[in-house]
Amino acid sequence: MHPALRAATSPHGVLMRSAALERGCDDDDIRAALRSGELWRIRAGTYAWTRHWDSLDQRGRHLMGVRGVVLKAETDVVVSHISAVVLHRGPLWELPIDLVHVTRPDRRGGRRAAGVVQHRGVLAESDVVVVDGLEVTSTTRTALDVLALHDLEHALPVLDDFLRRGLTSTAALEECRRRMDSWPGTLSADLAIRLSDGRRESVGESRTAYCLYLGGVPRPTPQWRVLDARGVEIARLDFAWPDAGVWVEFDGKEKYLKHRRPGESVVDAVLREKRREERIARLTGWRCIRIVWADLFHPEALAAYVVSVLRGGPVHAGRKSA
Score class of each variant (00 low, 15 high):
residue 85 V to D: 04
residue 58 Q to E: 15
residue 31 R to V: 06
residue 48 A to E: 03
residue 20 A to R: 02
residue 34 L to A: 08
residue 32 A to W: 07
residue 73 A to M: 06
residue 28 D to I: 07
residue 83 S to H: 02
residue 55 S to T: 13
residue 47 Y to F: 15
residue 45 G to Q: 09
residue 87 L to C: 05
residue 60 G to K: 00
residue 75 T to H: 13
residue 31 R to N: 10
residue 24 G to R: 04
residue 65 G to V: 09
residue 37 G to A: 14
residue 29 D to M: 00
residue 61 R to I: 06
residue 23 R to Q: 15
residue 87 L to T: 06
residue 23 R to C: 15
residue 71 L to Y: 15
residue 59 R to E: 14
residue 46 T to K: 06
residue 25 C to N: 02
residue 28 D to C: 05
residue 34 L to I: 02
residue 42 I to C: 08
residue 80 S to N: 11
residue 22 E to C: 00
residue 63 L to Y: 06
residue 33 A to V: 01
residue 51 R to K: 13
residue 28 D to R: 12
residue 21 L to S: 01
residue 55 S to E: 14
residue 47 Y to Q: 07
residue 60 G to H: 12
residue 33 A to F: 07
residue 31 R to A: 14
residue 48 A to H: 04
residue 72 K to D: 13
residue 46 T to C: 15
residue 73 A to G: 05
residue 50 T to V: 02
residue 32 A to V: 08
residue 44 A to F: 15
residue 31 R to P: 04
residue 27 D to P: 08
residue 25 C to T: 03
residue 64 M to Q: 12
residue 60 G to A: 11
residue 79 V to S: 01
residue 42 I to H: 01
residue 82 I to C: 09
residue 31 R to M: 09
residue 27 D to Y: 10
residue 77 V to Q: 01
residue 46 T to D: 07
residue 61 R to Q: 14
residue 47 Y to T: 01
residue 80 S to F: 12
residue 23 R to W: 15
residue 62 H to V: 01
residue 29 D to W: 05
residue 33 A to Y: 09
residue 31 R to E: 10
residue 54 D to T: 10
residue 62 H to W: 11
residue 47 Y to C: 04
residue 69 V to I: 14
residue 65 G to N: 13
residue 64 M to W: 13
residue 70 V to N: 02
residue 69 V to Q: 10
residue 33 A to T: 03
residue 32 A to P: 05
residue 49 W to H: 09
residue 20 A to G: 09
residue 74 E to S: 15
residue 68 G to A: 07
residue 86 V to S: 02
residue 66 V to F: 03
residue 80 S to V: 04
residue 58 Q to N: 14
residue 45 G to H: 03
residue 60 G to T: 08
residue 44 A to L: 10
residue 38 E to I: 04
residue 85 V to T: 02
residue 41 R to W: 00
residue 77 V to T: 03
residue 47 Y to N: 09
residue 20 A to I: 00
residue 75 T to G: 11
residue 47 Y to S: 04
residue 61 R to D: 08
residue 70 V to C: 05
residue 35 R to T: 11
residue 69 V to E: 05
residue 33 A to S: 06
residue 46 T to S: 15
residue 65 G to H: 12
residue 87 L to P: 01
residue 87 L to E: 02
residue 78 V to E: 01
residue 52 H to A: 14
residue 34 L to G: 08
residue 85 V to K: 09
residue 68 G to R: 06
residue 51 R to I: 10
residue 33 A to I: 03
residue 85 V to F: 05
residue 23 R to S: 14
residue 25 C to K: 03
residue 70 V to P: 02
residue 27 D to K: 14
residue 21 L to E: 06
residue 80 S to W: 13
residue 51 R to T: 12
residue 66 V to S: 00
residue 43 R to C: 08
residue 50 T to D: 02
residue 24 G to Q: 06
residue 28 D to Y: 00
residue 67 R to W: 06
residue 41 R to M: 07
residue 55 S to F: 15
residue 79 V to L: 06
residue 48 A to N: 07
residue 37 G to I: 14
residue 70 V to T: 01
residue 60 G to Y: 13
residue 88 H to Y: 07
residue 40 W to P: 01
